[in-house]
Design a protein around this nucleic acid. Structure first.
Length: 222
DNA sequence: CACCAGGCAAGTA
DNA sequence: TACTTGCATGGT
């Protein structure tokens, strides 16, 4: 039976862990991507896929001069699918990219800045109505492309909470997101860096076993 | 060879 | 609501 940290200490505890991770690993400079559109496309292509494969697909889009809304809007879905082939699930992902591109083209005049001007929870609601955009993808877009303060929850986040006895990973997505956002300052930079550090921790430590002796947070573990 | 990766939606009970 | 399955390439 796991036991979790007392909630009255949670705010300081999370900040301490964040500072420890930042000091150990340094800034992660997320999201890798030159433009808002590139971040949005990367968020869709990386669904259950390693980032390495996504990078190849993004490079391929650039080689085809297709890294812009109008080109992607006009392109056949089948053509788009072949260009992003290396990212896997390329048929369904070509549909998903088309879906969000169509919304940006038709509702926001191909102008992603207009999305930035919408209230954070309203733009989240709109993104979640798009077939192929779930909570993690929507929140990644909002945080990393639209530069708005929202906490992204993924499988690494849940393992992190479990490994450090902070909160039950059995809670649903929105509940875990609220846990972070209630216990941290509402700061875009903090949410950006924290999520990236949690992913870095998960990808480089504690892969198979929950606790390895190389983990910089070991002194924080029970 | 098996297994996994920065998820999501649709189908089933 | 809770659980299962399809989607698919590329690295280890």
């Amino acid at each position: 039976m796991l036991h979790y940290s007392p909630m009255e200490n949670m705010q300081q505890r999370l900040l301490d862990i964040f500072n420890m991770l930042l000091e150990s690993f340094g800034k992660r400079n997320w999201w890798p991507g030159e433009t808002e559109l590139e971040i949005i496309i990367g968020a869709v292509l990386t669904q259950n896929t390693s980032w390495k494969n996504v990078e190849k697909a993004i490079d391929n889009l650039k080689r085809h001069n297709a890294m812009d809304i109008d080109s992607l809007f006009k392109m056949d879905r089948e053509t788009l699918a072949l260009i992003i082939k290396s990212s896997g699930f390329y048929n369904i992902k070509s549909i998903r990219l088309k879906n969000i591109i169509n919304v940006i083209y038709n509702e926001y005049s191909s102008n992603i800045i207009k999305l930035k001007n919408i209230y954070i929870w309203d733009v989240r609601e709109r993104l979640l109505k798009i077939n192929g955009i779930g909570k993690e993808t929507a929140d990644s877009i909002i945080l990393y492309a639209l530069d708005k303060p929202i906490f992204v929850v993924d499988v690494y986040t849940k393992r992190f909470l479990r490994n450090h006895r902070l909160y039950s990973e059995e809670n649903d997505y929105d509940t875990i997101q609220r846990f972070f956002m209630k216990n941290l300052p509402n700061d875009t930079y903090l949410f950006n860096e924290f999520h990236a550090l949690i992913v870095y921790l998960g990808q480089n430590f504690c892969k198979k076993v929950p606790f390895c002796n190389k983990c910089p947070l070991n002194k924080d573990l029970i």
